[in-house]
Each structure stands twice: as C-alpha cells, then as structure tokens.
Design a protein around this nucleic acid. Structure first.
Lengths: 119, 119
DNA sequence: AAACCTTACGGCTTACGTAAGGATA
DNA sequence: TATCCTTACGTAAGCCGTAAGGTTT
C-alpha cells in the first residue's frame, strides 16, 4: 500500500474518470490504471467498476473511501510535522524545528507528483 | 511513503534495534536500514539516531510516531474492510468512526511481510 | 468516429539479500 | 572481540510512458 495508490484512489473517486485523475496527478492514464490495479490486487478487492463513461465505485470501494481520505490526511500531517510540506529545503536541514501548524487537508504537493506538470 | 516504511519505523521504535525489528518483519537487517533511509529521505528528516546499542528516536521521530501508529491502524482497517486482514467481515462492519490507534505490529501478513520468501 | 479504459513492451528506477566495512565499548 | 548499523554490489521486481487493443455509444 503506497501513498500514490491511495492518492490515485481518492482522486479517481472524486473525478469519476481515470484520465482526468491522471491529468490532475501528472501521470499518464495507463499509469493511473496500473496504480489502481496494484491497490486492488493488494486489497484483493475491486474498487471501481469500469464503464464507457468512466468509472464507478464498487460497494467495497465506497466503504474504503473515507478511510483512504483519513490516510491521506495523516500523511500530509506527517509531512507537515517533518517540515516537508511546501518548503523546498535547499540544504542544512537539521530536523529540529518548531513546526506545529495545525492546518488540515490543504496542500497536497511536496513530493507527490513525479514530473512533467503541463499546466 | 509506503506501508512497509511506516511499519519499519514503528517496529524499530518499539524494539529500539534495527536488527530485531528486521527479524520481526522478516527482512534482512540492511533492508530495514534501507527502508528507514528512504522514509527519512522522503520526509527530509532524521528519525533515529544510530548508536552502538541500537537506535534512539530523534525529536522529529518522536513527534511523528503517534501519527505513524495511526496510519498503521488505518491501513489495517482498510484491509479488514476489504477482507484481507484475517477477518472476512461479511456483516455490517462499516468501520466509520474516529481515528483509533489500536495494536500496532501484530499480524503483518496478508500482503505485507515477505516472510521467508527470498527472491 | 469518439471517449475511456486495459494490455503490451522497452527502459529506467527501486528493493532486497549477501558480503564487506565502520563505529563504539 | 562483540554488537549493531551502513555501504557496496548484483539481481529481481516494480513503475512509467508510448503504442496498440477493447468496448460502448
């Protein structure tokens, strides 16, 4: 279970289309398909039903979505605590700092998107 | 950020030794060292201080540990909902409730630990 | 044909185990 | 020397983009 898979899951669920989610995340569409396939394999459950208009959550997928969202929030919190969220951090990071902001699920970026962000 | 890295983090923190944690998780000891190194890199923070007797949590590591435990709990819940985590959960186990840390590094199997399956 | 997902394939990257190295006591 | 972590290195597996294939409308 990996961060990018969870993020793909939630993004697809919101967009109801893989190609759009792929675009949002900066991946090719087959890459997103692959990520979901991996997640479905590791959970041994089908998360989406594929339709010609996009995808639709299965019953299992619908049950897991809230947990997936919580997971994303926790990961963001962890990054925020560590100081990763939003700071480029050129060098000399001692790791001892007083980061204690308590924002919530803003700012998904940081180390997420891989490359080629056409905007 | 990957499941195995979080699991390694928590297990090491509990064992206070990498070699023991590696044993518990079914990895070689360098593999665990590598996993933590990856997590530290992705968080841009040192999580442990290495000592000849084992390891000791840094300040950052100590701050992140509770969140890491919650993350593990969420992953276990997700597996449980999907039917991977030992419980088949046919009935109405919807699992929609607040975050609750439960047990941590019990039951790594299912799709997690490589066990004694080298390449 | 258009829209959207999946499969196939080649290539770069990651992850692991074994072996060797380094540091502390 | 004993203990425990890290580095080096070779190999297997993973991940992604491009290209080609399905399926429904």
């Amino acid at each position: 279970m990996q961060e990018r898979e969870i993020r793909a899951f939630v993004t697809i669920a919101d967009a109801r289309r893989m190609d759009r989610a792929a675009q949002q995340l900066g991946y090719s569409q087959p890459a997103i398909s692959y990520q979901i396939k991996c997640l479905e394999k590791s959970l041994r459950t089908k998360l989406f039903e594929r339709t010609p208009e996009g995808v639709r959550l299965t019953d299992s997928g619908r049950r897991m979505l809230p947990t997936a969202r919580e997971m994303l929030a926790l990961m963001e919190r962890m990054k925020r605590i560590s100081g990763v969220g939003g700071n480029t951090g050129v060098g000399g990071n001692t790791g001892i700092d007083g980061v204690a902001s308590e924002l919530d699920h803003l700012l998904s970026e940081g180390a997420g998107a891989p490359s080629s962000t056409p905007r």
